[in-house]
Amino acid sequence: MPTAAQLFAAYFQVGISGFGGANAWARHVVVEKRGWLTDAEYAQRLGLGQVLPGPNAMNCAIIIGHEFAGVPGSIAAVTGMFAGPLSLLCGLAALYDRYGELQTVRAALAGVAAGAAGMMLGTALKLARRSRPTWPMWAVLAAALGASMADVPIGWILLVLGPLGILTARMERA
């Protein structure tokens, strides 16, 4: 079981490398590198993090931190995740107003963004395969994907597909 200090270190790594959002990196560090959770376990905590209000990655870090090291674990994970990027952003904020319009900067950012999107997609695919969905679960997954692509408000998606998803999990156990 990781200690609060190990959680801080792991989430510091998540924060500092988390281009394009932190969820994909959190999975990479917590599942692939440290082996603290399996993909299926990580996916469950991601689901909880999405249902709770606030940033998903933060909610996930709070849940995972608490699980391993109580309240200090949650605080360590969240501060670890925010510490690096926050200080970096302060520096960037000053530079960006001056150089953000440069074509070179834009081109590099476009390249990073394409990679980040691929990373998120690969993470979703891997989580889907490893969590072994039943076919009704695949249907809920596809519906969430389709609804979100069609810009259905997130509140409605959670309200309708959340309970439907739980129903599919009940069917599986029955």
Binding site: A124, L125, L141, A143, A144, S148, L161, G162, G165, I166
Partner: peptide
């Protein structure tokens, strides 16, 4: 377990 498919669908979106 039931929230997982929605979570993954939203992440893919």
């Amino acid at each position: 377990r039931g929230l997982v498919p929605m979570a993954i669908g939203l992440a893919a979106a």
